[in-house]
């Protein structure tokens, strides 16, 4: 399903690993791409995930995992270059364009994505999604944040504290 373009079975073809999502969907992906995850990297280095065995990921569902792998496959070549100091400006611009489009998604998907990136320890993805979420919430009021997160309405004491804070730091609310 999310198999990369590289040819199977060729000599010198990249090593593949299989990842299994929480809903039992199998994803075959290049080891280099999956290794962007610090969590998976060690297992893969130890030879895990190859052949018929897959690496089970009980915390990540298939929709989220396919999105995560889309990111990993795109970023794997640059990561293999060690942060790609010799990458051309065109390559970097292309990655940036991809990143911008990649996070242009529904809020609930972003939420699953940031959790998955955290669980799998994919640094680049974590910071990309965190930045996107930060941009989405930076203009909101504390009450809007509470509602978005489904917090109960503030108690009278909490409300009084919120009002006092707003009075003291009026500039932050302008």
């Amino acid at each position: 399903m999310a198999a990369p373009e590289s040819g199977d079975g060729n000599n010198g073809a990249a090593r593949m690993v299989t990842l299994i999502s929480s809903d039992n969907t199998r994803f075959e992906v290049e080891a280099a791409a999956a290794s962007l995850s610090q969590t998976l990297q060690l297992t893969i280095l130890d030879g895990g995930g190859g052949g018929g065995d897959g690496i089970p990921l009980p915390n990540v569902d298939s929709a989220t995992l396919s999105k995560v792998l889309e990111y990993c496959i795109k970023h794997a070549p640059a990561a293999a270059n060690g942060g790609a100091p010799n990458a051309t400006a065109v390559d970097r611009a292309e990655l940036e364009r991809f990143d911008n489009e990649f996070v242009n998604i529904d809020q609930s998907v972003l939420y699953s994505l940031i959790m998955a990136a955290h669980n799998l320890e994919i640094e680049g993805l974590q910071s990309l999604v965190a930045k996107k979420v930060a941009d989405m919430i930076k203009g909101k009021s504390p009450m809007e944040i509470r509602r978005t997160l489904g917090f109960p309405d503030p108690t009278p004491e909490e409300q009084a504290e919120m009002n006092a804070h707003m009075l003291e730091y009026g500039w932050a609310y302008e």
Binding site: I114, H118, Q126, S127, A130, K131, V133, A134, D135, I137, K138, G139, S141, P142, Y169, W171, A172, Y173
Partner: peptide, 13 residues
């Protein structure tokens, strides 16, 4: 991670 990427004005709020 999210909060780290917010401007100070938002953090204060």
């Amino acid at each position: 991670e999210v909060l780290l990427r917010l401007p100070v004005k938002s953090l204060m709020r």
